[in-house]
């Protein structure tokens, strides 16, 4: 499955990763070769084999629906770039 310039830009947009046209050209070659290496998988017949998501085939454990955390908002917001009154500041979204 050959990769094209537009695919790189599309992935970059989906990942919210700033990438110029020239950057995309730069990555196209590397990513193309990685996918070429990955394409060896297609040679294997995996019909009927269940995908393995967890190496011990464990399922998600459930816990009781109880409050276990205390409110430490101020502590956790100390590492934020910009906060005010407990809110994260970002550029205006709605005019």
């Amino acid at each position: 499955m050959a990769l094209e310039h537009a695919d790189v830009l599309r992935a970059a947009h989906l990942a919210r990763l700033g990438l110029s046209d020239e950057d995309a050209t730069h990555y196209l070659d590397d990513l193309g070769r990685i996918l070429e290496m990955v394409d060896h998988l297609q040679a294997l017949d995996t019909e009927g084999i269940a995908p393995l998501a967890h190496p011990l085939d464990a399922t998600q454990r459930l816990r009781a629906d109880e409050v276990t955390e205390t409110d430490r908002r101020d502590h956790f917001q100390r590492c934020a770039p910009a906060v005010e009154n407990g809110l994260y500041l970002v550029p205006r979204v709605v005019e």
Binding site: L3, R10, L17, L31, I34, L41, A50, P51
Partner: peptide, 24 residues
Amino acid sequence: LIGTHTLSEGFFDAYYKKAQQVRR
């Protein structure tokens, strides 16, 4: 970029699902 591409619409089965089958 690789991860986002392989998980994106139209590629998921061919890459991610296939890789998880091979993982088994």
